[in-house]
Design a protein around this nucleic acid. Sequence first.
DNA 1: ATAGGGTTAG
Length: 825
Amino acid sequence: MASLPFNIIPIKLPSNHHDVQARNPSSTSYFHRVSSLCKNGEIREALSLVTEMDFRNLRIGPEIFGEILQGCVYERDLCTGQQIHARILKNGDFYARNEYIETKLVIFYAKCDALEVAEVLFSKLRVRNVFSWAAIIGVKCRTGLVEGALMGFVEMLENGIFPDNFVVPNVCKACGALQWSRFGRGVHGYVAKAGLHDCVFVASSLADMYGKCGVLDDARKVFDEIPERNVVAWNALMVGYVQNGMNEEAIRLLSDMRKEGIEPTRVTVSTCLSASANMGGIEEGKQSHAISIVNGLELDNILGTSILNFYCKVGLIEYAEMIFDRMIEKDVVTWNLLISGYVQQGLVEDAIYMCQLMRLENLKFDCVTLSTLMSVAARTQNVKLGKEVQCYCIRHSFESDIVLASTAVDMYAKCGSVVDAKKVFDSTVQKDLILWNTLLAAYAESGLSGEALRLFYEMQLESVPLNVITWNLIILSLLRNGQVNEAKEMFLQMQSSGIVPNLISWTTMMNGLVQNGCSEEAIRFLRKMQESGLRPNVFGITVALSACSNLASLHFGRSIHGYIIRNQQHSSSVLIETSLVDMYAKCGDINKAERVFGSKLSRELPLYNAMISAYALYGNVKEAIALYRSLEEDVSIKPDNITITNVLSACNHAGDINQAIEIFTDMVSKHGMKPCLEHYGLMVDLLASAGETEKALSLIEEMPYKPDARMIQSLVASSKKQQHKSELMDYLSRQLLELEPENSGNYVTVSNAYAVEGSWDEVVKMREMMKVKGLKKKPGCSWIQIKGEEEGVHVFIANDKTHLRNNEIRRILALLLYDMCSDSK
DNA sequence: ATAGGGTTAG
């Protein structure tokens, strides 16, 4: 200690000297006390100290206000901060025009997300330093004005202020949000130049930015070069992987980081859970759940909902329920997740019950709850529920919610009320593309191509930008209405308007062509689609295979089978295996159908059904029944209506009445099934063709359905057996067409029957009659022209959805082709 | 006596 220029007589301090000091403290000690109170978040106490200073006439300098403002920043206490701001203004320019205080105020308002005030104060600053710039860029980022944040960054550089490692993370975040990878790359360049790349904050936000922009290679590169990676860096990369569908990589990252001894956080576990949910990885998700328990991570709302979301997505609804019950703070999100989990599992009743419970807990439905409920109404075709939801929306001012408007349009469309769908559409003031497309989808699904086209032109008049979905829907509407040429024209127009057809576009065209009897063209479209670099999905392949069946083209069928084998991703799909069995059978190669069926270890019902149907086609009743019996012995599979239809039609083709009766009675007694109209129809057919007209009649009387035209046709046929064939056909056709003169399907049936007879004049006559009557062929019911190998063999067949008569035609055709196949061997 | 930052669920 330096010696003093004079002597001080040491005085004895009183025992309560601390109190004395408290009663007579200096400005400095006040400053320290204010400072420490503020750091502990006790701002009101700090404020009362300032009042005390005022009483004592002590000088209250700007640094005191600075400290308290800093406390308000920590606490995000807007109200107290505003009071301080007022005092500063009252104290005059010495305080209010102090650079430190001015900057601090900008930071304070920015931190409290009061963007407008912060901007006004910022604009009045005489000196803008790196701190105020960082505050402004930060608040713009947080409030979603990301473009503004980037503008700020640029302006800051232009003004010669160099962004530091506190500014860059926000700039990266803005680039990521906008997916401006090129801007981001520029920032990366600045980081390298400014030597900020070693900062873990900067590096992990760069990795995050690249991840958000979908440039995962660069995200990885940045991540790998971080000298000391913390858990946030790992999390950022992991999130990037998950957001780009690279779920496996994300899971691998979890084990890598654990190997390096980095403890996962709630963010880590949450991210892994969504990766697991996305890839349907039950084990991975359960592991993540276990890690959260082992690491003692607090089951907060976010982690809880992640776990809940995972169990809902993978269909483990009981686990989801357990998590839900154990969560303490349940918010709307929690409830929404479980509710939509129920809906995904088809547990509609539970979903509705949960909604009621949610209301009892005094939680309000939000737009997610309401759109889930609306989709329940659509799925169950429950207009009453849909209307209730819509009323709730109106009462709670959700009318302007564009997402809900779209789900309401969809709901009415699915419930068959296009008019109400249009009403919702019209009443929505601000229409977006999704809303337009939803109404367009309603028209397209019902084949209302006229309405669809009108809407399509209206969209162009209102300059709504059309996307690929719009074009796909307009094409679908045309195809559903049988306007093949118009659809092809639209397909070309779409491309010339600069929209590249996607997988759905091609598949829609292919399916529509097949449905409208243009199978050859459908195959050509498949080829063109592959040339454009797209691979067909499971549905596309089944469509292509049904085209082969319609064309009876073993050649095309085999080449598609080859494609399936080469692209192994589809080879295990039951849908495709089923289509393959069906295709080989219909193309005349029952042996190959059997081989495809036999090569599968796990057999599922559709596959059995297809094989039984194939046997039926060939009249191989023994094999069909044997397969049916072996299915009955397998406890894991239960026959369905289609199985019974297929076995019965096998009996039908073989005229095996006893077997048919046995199966018919078994289905009720053994399996507790209820025969459908089609089953009765087959039985009537069998009885009638065996000359048992009386029995057939009594079966019709005892069945719980109205008889259809076909049953009458069978009965008529059985009683007119002796007549000349063509006379019979004339008779039948009159009967059939008189019974349901407006049913276009009947015309197809009759015309196909004539086709089998080879009476081409009659086929043409039928078509003309339809034209005169203004009847249109229904979707899914069509003539398909088959060109046989022999000259002059033209057979018209219709597809499965029309009448059973088609199977008979198919059978003849299949046998014909089978003979041809055997000949060529 | 003086300032601030990145990641997560529907």
